[in-house]
Write a protein that binds this DNA or RNA. Sequence first.
DNA 1: GGTAGACCTGGACGC
DNA 2: GCGTCCAGGTCTACC
Length: 296
Amino acid sequence: MTTLTISARQPFSFLSVVNSHGWVQLAPFNFDKGTETLTYILRLSSGRVLDLILLAAPGGVRVETDDLGPAEEDEISRTVAWMLALDQDFSAFYAEARKEPKLAHVEAKAQGRVLRSPTLFEDVVKTILTTNTLWAATKRMTANLVEQFGDPLPGDPDRKAFPTPERLAASTPEALKNGTRVGYRAPYVHELAVRVASGELDLEALKGFDLPTPELRKRLLAIKGVGAYAAANLLMILGRYDFLPVDSWALKVVSHEWHDGQPIGKAEVESAFERWGAFKGLAYWFWDWAYFHQEK
DNA sequence: GGTAGACCTGGACGC
DNA sequence: GCGTCCAGGTCTACC
């Protein structure tokens, strides 16, 4: 067994990242609340499938997995650093958040990071699977996708990695739809897989691109199945917070926060966070909503 | 540039 | 039981 300890830019809270959004509930992630252990079935670039066990450690995170070669160790360190956004700096956001009682908690809790999948491909697919459906269905669709098309973990083949673009591209929209119950999203997922697998679309390159956010957003919106909400969600994952992922949940919490629970539209959500500029997404995401404090 | 209508799926709800 | 509605929206056609 190998144990790696990876340091994070401070302040850092392992649990704040894990609980930053629902991603932790999507396969091949799993979180054990009792032991506060995050597991993830990772497929390395070599094709080797490993079970990563992640735990909080002083100054960062501890990773336990099978015996590794030096190159694999390096790949896992880089992957985990991306997944937990270990290098991200939120000091400018915290400076603004200190002036807002509804965000007073973020610095002490080291909030700001959002949990990411190893590849942007996986996060785009998962985001498409969150659209126009219930969260329970998103979890089911993702689990089905992993179960049907993921590479198995040696020694425990019931546990599988997230499918590669190549594997999904080799399938058909019909097989995807019938096997995973993703419904009308099947052609979107398949087309994305084909474009990525063929090399036409280099999604992973977008991680490091220094493009202005509107240009990055255009690239994301060019993906079938990715609209305004999905693009904003993916921009958050890419560390850009200029756009709000306005969904039915946003309409609900903003309505209860400032409009007495009355029906509102996207414009009201945008207007509520306009003043946060480049930190819009963060302010929205980590806001201490009144909705959480009332009887529901 | 803005907006109806259709869209897989499967729980929740009303009858 | 059965029909309708709708959910962490997006696309297309049409204006």
